[in-house]
């Protein structure tokens, strides 16, 4: 439904997006994850047709967004980074304007307005001027605007920013419910959000795609660089030698724990094999006192940091 083929975007001599390629299938919800300034907004703007790629091709439902963006616009609902609101209009006048401008048939406008107002819980403020609304409500009016005209493709740039926890929950429900018959590409820098809503995650940094996979697939990929941590009362040099002798342990980091400097906290980098914990426990427990041992499974935070920290920051800064 959405396809990017080696897309690059340059502003002057500055390259914002480097050779980005990925697909979003029909009915899929894909999360676009990256730190601030990674190129998420620029990419969404290209998919929405607001800006064009310097090279490469962006297509939505087969339409080329550089040249056929007007034809494709009817199928796209877009919530930009800053909700595009007219402050002096009241909420329903604004939504009516967007519905008309999007080409919603006159007879259906009333029903469409009612639908998005209900979906985004805007009943209480529908007659209020937009400049009087809180940030959370502004964000929801922005989301409502994107839903008008039942677009097949939803592009949401940080949809839950500015919402309180309850509203975030609701917004996620709304987005998830649209995943059934819509294709959704959303950007966020909130990690749990993608596991909760998205079927696939694309990680991007410095305008480059670092990984795209299901959340569990990403987890598997990173597990290859697994860690076992243990607390042990032992002399540092002896335990280091013992652990490095264990087959599968590739690197060690040893430091005393804060409460008691006789106890060492050791972080071992290990293979992806099963039973690594047991092998380490055997090697240590026979000679010293082992207090604690655990195999760390990567959380989404770790996965994210893993990819982002391995990306060529130095190159981009140069």
């Amino acid at each position: 439904m959405i396809a990017l083929e080696s897309v690059s975007k340059r502003y002057g001599s500055k390259t914002i997006i480097h050779d980005l390629s990925f697909n979003v299938e029909k009915g899929e919800i894909v999360g676009f994850l990256g730190p601030n300034g990674a190129g998420k907004t620029t990419t969404l703007r290209m998919v929405a047709g607001f800006t064009t790629a310097t090279s490469g091709r962006v297509t939505v439902a087969g339409w080329d967004m550089a040249t056929q963006n007007v034809a494709a616009a009817r199928r796209i609902g877009y919530l930009p980074e800053h909700p595009p609101l007219y402050d002096t209009l009241d909420v329903s006048t604004y939504l009516r304007f967007v519905a008309k401008a999007k080409g919603v048939a006159r007879a259906e406008i009333g029903a469409e307005l009612a639908r998005v107002i209900e979906a985004c819980r805007l009943e209480a403020v529908s007659r209020r001027e937009i400049f009087k609304l809180s940030k959370g409500y502004r964000q929801r009016v922005g989301l409502a605007q994107a839903l008008l005209g039942k677009p097949e493709v939803l592009l949401l740039d940080e949809p839950t920013i500015g919402l309180d926890p309850g509203q975030i929950q609701e917004a996620r429900e709304v987005i998830r419910s649209f995943g059934d018959d819509h294709t959704v590409l959303l950007s966020t820098h909130i990690l749990p959000e993608v596991t909760l809503i998205c079927q696939r995650v694309a990680i991007i940094n410095h305008g480059r795609l670092l990984a795209i996979d299901t959340p569990s697939g990403l987890q598997r990929a990173v597990e290859q660089a697994n860690h076992v941590t243990l607390h042990v009362t032992a002399p540092a040099e002896a335990v280091r030698a013992e652990l490095l002798a264990v087959d599968g342990v590739s690197a060690l980091e040893i430091r005393p724990i804060a409460e008691d400097d006789r106890i060492l906290a050791i972080d071992c980098r290990v293979d992806d094999r099963d039973g690594m914990e047991a092998a380490i426990a055997r090697a240590v427990a026979s000679r010293w006192e082992l207090h604690r041992l655990e195999r760390r499974h990567p959380t989404l935070e770790n996965i994210f940091l893993h990819y982002v920290s391995e990306s060529p920051i130095a190159e981009a800064a140069a």
Partner: peptide, 13 residues
């Protein structure tokens, strides 16, 4: 106001 982003992504030339 950032509303250009709306105007230029409407189905309008």
């Amino acid at each position: 106001d950032g509303t250009m982003e709306l105007l230029q992504t409407l189905p309008l030339q």
